[in-house]
C-alpha cells in the first residue's frame, strides 16, 4: 500500500447527501477480477449520459476537477454495499482523500485499506471547504496526516481526528495482514482453547 503523508491537490466539491456505493461504482462494473481499471467508471451514472457522452454539468467533467485528488462530499458518503470497488475506483481515478460530515462504516474502513484517507469534519467546515473547492484552479487544499490538519487555500488550518492505529498504518503504508501475522501465537492459543471448550465452532 502506498503511504499517505501529505497531499496537496485539487479538491472537487460533491456535496450531495447519501452518495451510495452504486453511485460511486454501479454493480455492472464489478465483474472484474482486478483492483485496477475502475476509475473510468467512477460515478458512472452521474458522469455520463445515457448515450455514453460526458455530462458536462458533473464536477469531475470540468477543469480543473478532472485532476482532483481530494473530494469534499456530503453526509453519509459511501452508504450501501461493502464493495471495495468503491475505494478502488476513487483511487484509480486519482482521489486519495475524501472529506465529509460522516461516512458509512464499511466504506470508511475500506478506504484505509487502500491508502485513501477519509476525514470526518462538521457540516459547516465541509461547507467552507466545498466553497474553497469551488474556486476552480485555485481549489488547492493540503491534507497533512502527520500533523492532522487540512490547510485551506487561504492558509487557515483545520484540525481533524483520526484513529491512531490507522494513522500509523497509512503513514507507513503498512498492510494489516503482515501485522496480524505477528500475533499468530495468540491466535493459535485462542483456537486451541476453543477446540476444547466449544468444539462445534
Amino acid at each position: 500500500m502506498q503511504p499517505f503523508t501529505t497531499l496537496t491537490g485539487i479538491a472537487a466539491p460533491l456535496p450531495l447527501p447519501n452518495v451510495d456505493t452504486d453511485k460511486i461504482i454501479p454493480a455492472r462494473f464489478l465483474k472484474t477480477i482486478l483492483r485496477t481499471g475502475l476509475g473510468k467508471n467512477l460515478f458512472d451514472t452521474l458522469r455520463f449520459n445515457a448515450d455514453g457522452s460526458e455530462n458536462a454539468d458533473f464536477v469531475l467533467n470540468k477543469e480543473p476537477y478532472r485532476r482532483a485528488e481530494i473530494l469534499v462530499a456530503g453526509p453519509n458518503f459511501g452508504c450501501g454495499s461493502s464493495r471495495e470497488h468503491a475505494p478502488w475506483a476513487l483511487l484509480d481515478f486519482g482521489i486519495r482523500c475524501v472529506i465529509a460530515p460522516d461516512f458509512a462504516d464499511i466504506f470508511f474502513n475500506n478506504c484505509f485499506k487502500n491508502g485513501i484517507l477519509p476525514i470526518r469534519l462538521p457540516q459547516a467546515v465541509c461547507d467552507a471547504l466545498a466553497a474553497d473547492a469551488s474556486l476552480g484552479p485555485n481549489a488547492r487544499i493540503t491534507v497533512d496526516l502527520e500533523r492532522q490538519v487540512v490547510v485551506r487555500p487561504n492558509g487557515d488550518e483545520i484540525r481533524f481526528e483520526v484513529d491512531a492505529f490507522r494513522r500509523h498504518c497509512l503513514l507507513n503504508g503498512l498492510d494489516d495482514i503482515g501485522q496480524t501475522m505477528a500475533h499468530a501465537p495468540k491466535i493459535d492459543a485462542f483456537e486451541e482453547r476453543r477446540r476444547a471448550e466449544q468444539p462445534w465452532l
Partner: peptide, 16 residues
C-alpha cells in the same frame, strides 16, 4: 457483518 475485500483476505489468511 459485511467486510471489504482487503478484510476478506485478512480473514482468509488469519481467521481474525
Amino acid at each position: 457483518f459485511g467486510i471489504g475485500t482487503s478484510e476478506v483476505e485478512h480473514v482468509l489468511a488469519t481467521q481474525t
